[in-house]
Structure formats: structure tokens, C-alpha cells
Design a protein around this nucleic acid. Structure first.
Ligand SMILES: [Mn+2]
Ligand SMILES: [Mn+2]
Ligand SMILES: [Zn+2]
Ligand SMILES: [Zn+2]
Lengths: 121, 121
DNA sequence: ACGGTAATGAAAATCATTTTCATTTGTGAT
DNA sequence: ATCACAAATGAAAATGATTTTCATTACCGT
């Protein structure tokens, strides 16, 4: 196992939200940093193991990473124009946790999205 | 766009839980059915569009498919072994509707998944 | 039968991710 | 500083799922 290259973490921080390994790599290239794609993958995996970074999957299957501890939230998205509202989980957080515990699951996470047609559309 | 090959749906039914496209394909091969992998992919994709099957992603990123029941439901999935429990929306249905209305959205839908590690893993 | 459209599948292309492996770098002891 | 050894690095090749191409075949209405 290898330890995470600090420049990878720093780049992921700078990226803001979620970013894939490929995106982190391209970002570093663009900023003139010399690094191999392999090292980016290895570093991100290591950060996930250490629970410094969350990983989940895009619809297309690509893995995307983000720093843990950024506030957890969900999205309300307009199917027509794409306008997005960030919303707090509220009741859903408890619901997910409760359901999971009822079935004996641990290490619980969840995803939730609401979509519809916004006022303007 | 193509319509789903009925033998693909039939195989997915017979498979029981979730199965990937590759698995459905291998299953059909083993049972002597003559079909192309491309057709399996196309059929599953079509079934997803028609909301006859659910699709989600394994930890390794491979897409897995399963017949969905006729009633709207959500999933509690083990990240390790893939075991899946169907759960009722309950609180989340109201939550999604309420949040959407607060922001003036109509024609509201939602997605929600809970994941974690099951008892056996 | 004829003409057009949809379905099929083999092969090649794509693309993220992993593996290999040779090279470089860091560390710690002598 | 020199040596030895372990860890980190990255280029290139391998992997594996999914998509695309494209030529062939099955199907349907007239
Ligand atoms: Mn939440
Ligand atoms: Mn629901
Ligand atoms: Zn809108
Ligand atoms: Zn499990």
C-alpha cells in the first residue's frame, strides 16, 4: 500500500465538489504539476481507505471523490432547465439510518434526489 | 432504439436477484440460447427505459439489473455482497413532495437508495 | 414478391481502472 | 558519505465492461 500524495488531496480540495480520478489528473496537468495517472488513482484509493475522502459512482459508472465533511446535502433538480436547489436532508437522514439499522446494516450511507418541473418551466 | 428481446427478460426473471449484463449473457449461453452480447445490453437498456427493470451499480462499477415490483419502492443494498432489501418509501415520499412544493416544483419524482454493510459481511 | 424498417451480432473502438515492472526517491544504519 | 533496503512513482501494457460500427438477417405492410 502507498500513502497518499499530498498534492492529490490538495487538488481535490481546490476542485470544490466531486471529481473523478481522471478529472483530478487533468487538473494537475493543466496546472503544470508533474504526476502520473497511476499515482492519482493510488492516492485517491488511499484517501478513501483512510476515510478522508468519500467515493461514489456517477450514472455512467465513473468513480467520483470528494472530501468528507463537506456538508451533506441533496438536490432538487428541474427536469426541463436543469435548475438545481440544494436542500438539507432533514428527516431523510434519520429515515435512512433507521431503516438500515432495522435490517442489521452498519456503515450506512444514502443517496436521494428530487426532480420535477420548476416554476419557470 | 430497439425493443427488448423477450428471452433476455425471461432470463433475468429466472436469475432471481440482481444480474449484470455479462451474467445474463453467460446464463443464456450456458442454457444453449443463441444470442449476442450486444443484444443483451440493448435489451436491458430498453427495459430500464421502460422502467421494467431497476439498474444500479456494484462497488466495482458494473451495472446490475433486476425486475422491479409494480409498486414504487427503494433499495437497501449491501456494499460488500450486493444483498438487497426492498423498502417502502414511507417518510421519504412526503418529504420529497413537500420540499418540491415549497420551491414551486410540480410533476415531482425522486430517487433514494440506502447502502451499507449487511449482517453477514 | 418487393421495399423498407427494425433487430441482430461479430468485431472493433472506447474508456476507466488495474497490473506490471523498471526506475527513482527516501530513510536509516554504519 | 556510502550502502542497503523499502516505499513511491509512472510509463506502458493488460483488463474488462460498455458502446459503436456496420454488414447481415428477420419482419411487416403493400
Ligand atoms: Mn442525506
Ligand atoms: Mn419513493
Ligand atoms: Zn426548470
Ligand atoms: Zn453483505
Amino acid at each position: 500500500m502507498s500513502r497518499s500524495n499530498p498534492r492529490v488531496l490538495s487538488t481535490l480540495e481546490r476542485a470544490g465538489g466531486f471529481a473523478s480520478a481522471q478529472e483530478v489528473y487533468r487538473l494537475m496537468q493543466r496546472e503544470g504539476e508533474s504526476i502520473g495517472l497511476t499515482t492519482v488513482y493510488r492516492s485517491l484509493q488511499s484517501l478513501v481507505n483512510d476515510k478522508i475522502v468519500d467515493v461514489l459512482r456517477r450514472d455512467d459508472g465513473e468513480a467520483i471523490y470528494r472530501l468528507c465533511g463537506e456538508s451533506h446535502h441533496h438536490h432538487l433538480v428541474c427536469k426541463s432547465c436543469g435548475e438545481t436547489v440544494e436542500i438539507e436532508g432533514g428527516a431523510i437522514e434519520k429515515w435512512a439510518q433507521l431503516i438500515a439499522e432495522e435490517h442489521g446494516f452498519r456503515d450506512v450511507g444514502h443517496t436521494a434526489e428530487i426532480f420535477g418541473i420548476c416554476k419557470k418551466c
